[in-house]
């Protein structure tokens, strides 16, 4: 794993070109609630959710689909507003998207009309940086995610894993303090996913950014998170909070991790069964 890390991530590229890389900020969730209204009925997507995420903490939101974890991420990204409660980022209430928070999706969501480098430059262009500055930053970020030589490739020429790495570089380009990830590796094969885990972990430890990572994969959450919040669906609520103290980097196959996964899964199953027993 260490070898893979060294091979896959050239953090010196990042440190040399981004001396003032922004480190993480806190996230405070204060009774965040989301209810969707559909003509006749209302659906409670998220019951009041309160927690504090420390600066530089890696928190995984774990749960089956429909448990409100993506909604929560959209709220932090500023794409949706909570029905009640609020989220503070670095002490300031979130009301709109902001460059201190970057969001990554399961699909890389790269723009097909732009080449790889122009995709990475997209956020910098919104900040009206000079062409030279944009190109320099894009190149060093692409070097960091090991895509040097692909600057002018079209998006469709890249594999799924490469696309996610471009998306990561594009998000890091705006130098966010918080990275929000919505099942970013869900569509990747197991080996590529392992590499992406190592890569993400290395970037995280090099930059100290706060990461909120949504997944339905228990082992993925255990491999990456400092803390895991397990959600249950209908209505979305936290049923379990686990602090993961296993040493890093973690192997998905280690006994300790597999044992913890089994425990968390049994809690999830019980919660799911309880939810299913209720009238929908």
């Amino acid at each position: 794993m260490i070898l893979v890390l060294a091979d896959w991530l050239d953090c010196s590229a990042m440190n040399s070109t981004r001396p003032h890389s922004q480190s993480g900020i806190t996230l405070q969730f204060r009774g965040v609630t989301k209810t969707f209204y559909d003509r006749a009925r209302s659906v409670e997507a998220l019951q009041p959710f309160t927690t504090d995420v420390a600066a530089g903490e890696f928190v995984c939101l774990l749960g089956p689909s429909g448990c409100g974890k993506s909604t929560l991420l959209n709220i932090v990204a500023g794409l949706e507003l909570p029905t009640a409660g609020q989220v503070l980022a670095g002490g300031k209430p979130i009301t709109a998207p902001g460059s201190e928070r970057a969001l990554l999706f399961q699909e890389a969501a790269l723009f097909p009309w732009l080449d790889v480098q122009a995709n990475v430059e997209f956020g910098l262009r919104q900040q009206r940086r000079s062409a030279q500055e944009r190109a320099d930053m894009a190149r060093s970020l692409l070097a960091m995610v090991h895509l040097t030589g692909f600057e002018h490739s079209a998006v469709h020429q890249l594999s799924g894993g490469m696309r996610q790495r471009v998306a990561l570089a594009r998000a890091l380009a705006i130098d966010p303090a918080v990275i929000l990830m919505d099942e970013p590796f869900g569509a990747l094969d197991a080996i590529t996913r392992d590499r992406m885990h190592a890569e993400l972990e290395a970037i995280w430890s090099a930059t100290g950014k706060t990461i909120l990572f949504v997944t339905h994969n228990v082992r993925e959450a255990l491999a990456l998170g400092d803390r895991i919040l397990t959600f249950s669906p209908r209505p979305g609520r936290v049923v379990q909070e686990v602090r993961v103290t296993l040493p890093r980097p973690r192997s998905l196959e280690s006994h300790a991790l597999v044992d913890m996964a089994a425990q968390i899964l049994s809690v999830m199953r019980t919660a799911e069964a309880n939810a299913a027993a209720l009238p929908a």
């Binding site: 990204a77 794409l79 999706f105 919104q126 900040q127 998000a171 705006i174």
Partner: peptide, 13 residues
């Protein structure tokens, strides 16, 4: 909609 979401979080408005 995914492109719009991505663009907005990257600062496009």
């Amino acid at each position: 909609p995914l492109y719009l979401k991505a663009a907005r979080t990257l600062g496009a408005r």
